[in-house]
Design a protein around this nucleic acid. Sequence first.
DNA 1: AGCGCTTATTGACGCAAGTCAAAGAGCGCT
DNA 2: AGCGCTCTTTGACTTGCGTCAATAAGCGCT
Lengths: 255, 255
Amino acid sequence: MNTQLVDLDVDLDKETPISACPHEYHPHCNNCRLAGICLPFALEGKEIDELDNIIQRSKPLQKGQHLYREGDGFESVYAVRSGTLKAYQTTDDGREQVTGFYFPGEILGMDGIAKNSHASSARALETAAVCEIPFTSLEKLSAGMPHLQRHFFQLMSREIAEDQQLITLLSKSSADERVAALLLSISSRNARRKLSATQFRLSMSRVDIGNYLGLTVETVSRVFSRMQKMSILQVENKEIEILDLEALKEMADLR
Amino acid sequence: MNTQLVDLDVDLDKETPISACPHEYHPHCNNCRLAGICLPFALEGKEIDELDNIIQRSKPLQKGQHLYREGDGFESVYAVRSGTLKAYQTTDDGREQVTGFYFPGEILGMDGIAKNSHASSARALETAAVCEIPFTSLEKLSAGMPHLQRHFFQLMSREIAEDQQLITLLSKSSADERVAALLLSISSRNARRKLSATQFRLSMSRVDIGNYLGLTVETVSRVFSRMQKMSILQVENKEIEILDLEALKEMADLR
DNA sequence: AGCGCTTATTGACGCAAGTCAAAGAGCGCT
DNA sequence: AGCGCTCTTTGACTTGCGTCAATAAGCGCT
């Protein structure tokens, strides 16, 4: 019965290729409220239009649908416009490792540049919309726009630095610290989008959280319960309220 | 007495800034036997010369000396010419996380681009020489040389993909698997430089290995002993011989 | 509203790897 | 050659998290 689910999902992908919808919704970088997060400050009006021209929008991805799969030819990087996606790799024996969650304004797919094929898969955790940025166009545009070139070097560098943070987390921290760190990360990314830093809905399952943090579901669940008992969190299923941000920060720091 | 060691090391750095030696050794990309690893294939002779012009060589780093430190202003990325370096981050409470080892032909420092300051420190594990590549020059040059631009995007992307591999390793693997994976990584990187894939000297200590793999020294040591007992390895201090490459590969695969 | 699914919580138990401790090996110094 | 480091190995014990198992809670279906 597991197999059935997977097949279903594959069919879904085939039935609805993400760039073939007749009634596409076409927003523009110019009036995008996420531009501050995903574009370089220093870009001028005319430059933004040039960038806007190469970007392809497409109909939203449904929950569970793939944006790309490990091994797919690399064509584009993607900016999240709404919803959440997870990136993950599959090991030889079929197990999954979640390598990142991507929220609106964030960019994914950059790990595919090296080998010209995607090094990870990306799927929507809920209905999600993305801007597709064809990479060769981006390269050409970058060559003539120093700000843009710099911006993409910076984006990739940030991805490296963040992965290294995660490496440290996985290598040195207890279960409590890992969960605390993830919650704080989500909190600050929400704040950047002018959403509440203390109250939000987790778009990912406990399984995904555990997978990302190198923990089992049970452990994640236990940590949530413990934090609730300590009045640091209010957990109601996927709804999280951070009651004591300071305590959470203290918890996230390696002791 | 630990303090003394640290102070000594800082003094060393101050006394010998890496670009102020009167008798610098000046090799060129043109005749560098590592060019195949660190440069893009597609670069033409004239282009290589241009790149060569912006690269700064300096006197070798001594064992323990820093190439850069976390928080230092970001100026350049570095290609290793000889020796080995480790990159590491220091957590708030002073503990260290080794985020990578860098062998000849490999490039480090790219995590500094995002914030314009280095996100990690890099120090020599043995006497080492590096080529310093000033980043602003590299950016300018890239804008006019598509191959070079592409190459650096690829290098950064590869770093991302490799970090994600490490994330999976730390998140999902047993001590045996981690050590096996590191040995195989070193083995294949040696092979790429036409060195023996089965016999080599570990330039890093057991502490560094453990730190990198998220294990304690004791565990690393025990794994080596176990592998020796199983006739997979011949371990003699830092000298390693891989006796059974297949068995090692099997071990590295997640089971 | 009620069935069948997936997801989450909680408890009891076991084990891989960490901690503590001590001894031995390697290596730079004088 | 011998002292004083640091690095490595090995053993005995502890522990945090994984595993297994059972129950409960959510959610999309009809």
